[in-house]
Design a protein around this nucleic acid. Sequence first.
RNA 1: GGUGCGGUAGCCAAGUGGCCUAAGGCGAUGGAUUGCAAAUCCAUUAUUCGCGGGUUCGAAUCCCGCUCGCACCUCCA
Length: 505
Amino acid sequence: MAIRFYNSLTNQTEDFQPLEAGVVRMYSCGPTVYDFAHIGNFRSFLFADLIRRFLEVMGNDVTHIMNITDVGHMTDDHLADGGGEDKMEAAAKRLKEDKKSGKVPDGAIENPDDPYQVAQFFTDAFLEDSRKLGLKIAFEYPQNIPHATNHIQDMQEMIDELIKSGHAYVGPDGAVYYSVESFPKYGSLSGNTLDQLREGSGGRVQQNDQASKKHPADFLLWKPDQSHIMKWDSPWGMGYPGWHIECSVMARKLLGRDVIDIHTGGEDLIFPHHECEIAQSCGASGEDHFARFWMHARFLMVEGEKMSKSKGNFYTVRDVLGGKVTGREVHPAVLRYELIRSHYGSNMNFTEKGLKDSAAAVRKLNEFNAMLEAKTGGEAAEVDNSHPVLAGFLGALSDNLNISGALGVLFPWMSGPHENPQESLAVLRTINRILDVAPMEHAEELQSESSDAGGFDPAELCKGIDDARANKDYGRADELRNQLQDAGYEVRNSPEGTIATKQLA
RNA sequence: GGUGCGGUAGCCAAGUGGCCUAAGGCGAUGGAUUGCAAAUCCAUUAUUCGCGGGUUCGAAUCCCGCUCGCACCUCCA
């Protein structure tokens, strides 16, 4: 079964083979930690998670690295004078307000004026969200999730290499720039040419920002700036690194290679970020490639519109899980499923209806799992990937991660007969190593049996319904059922009597 | 203006030359079941694939033109 992925570098779907058989080295651009991550961020992170889990089930040993960008970049970092507001300061300001208003609990962060504390606060929030959504890499912190600020020295070393090899220069303003003209392939990932970039820069980039650069597309590697909130000593003065260099450096260092197998990120990162990474890494290594496969997730839309704070359709993970979309709590497995069920190569439209559809699918999968577990006592048979259902499921994913095709194999199989439940359980478990929703590892139980606070006891109400029905007091039974439903429970009959399960979304 | 992706049923979405009179899911409708519901099960739900040409024995799938949507080219996943 050949694995084929769409490679943004060649704009073609190509056979995927890791450089070293059975070992995959992949790098994913991670979050900036100036705020809570939103569901669009997580679509991209979950897309990387899906690749990783799929490759593992296919028998590969995958090393996955994802960075935490905690260097306090400027909002206008792309400008040569590094103007604008410091993102870390802006984050601190927000945190202080949130602390006052009680949105951030007391003690969650001691001193918002310490940028490292701000970064750690949002890093922790990111890790918490990630673990809830089943991002495997989040359980590998900190070893596989490096902080940029822990690699400043390494960045300086690469900058030095680039200067020595003629790919970088110190401008008249003292800043270190990468010279795009020194790297003929600059633009090959995004389809830009230097001429186009020069034209495109007209009118948008202010003249004085360009004065120190040899070419308008030259980008910052090190900016001497005493006033910056986070700053480090360097051969080019006290200052901070450019925002592309960290990925080149950490990928090389943690994956131990100049050429890696897969690099992922959101589509917006193709240019300039990934273009610049390639220039830096290849400039430093002399290799033809940095990553052999570049894979990019398309943007997520919300109810047909681009997500933006001003439109009010901007959701963080905690917003969605907390019920901001549906009006009731959403189980993490539902959001995970919703964010991975559509193909990464198309824009996904996040809707309330879609979320509810996903809840139904997740519930179905979990009930199927529970049925098999009960029938087998948890004893699964041995199956390998040649099992027809797995071959179909994995075969679809092998075709550039065709998740719809894969689910199109899973669902009909699920509702078919299962004469050998031990075998079926083994198949489901393998599939769930990729989907991680039935059951979701590390997540709280899907069915909360415990009684809620405030004296609301679903089990008690269920018993009341059964008693009322036994007495043919249907008015009473309906009343109790309504109470449960209003509280967000699904109510149904079973041979053991009435059962109430919490709605998943 | 440049670059890339896409327009398939009410919605999501697979299929990229014959097995397609087009997977799968959701929804809807009818039936079984139920005190009524829910859940479950069964059945039905696109002769048609943005529009117009063309190539071919044969096209949703290839070519040309048009059109609409999205994204990037500037911080953004």
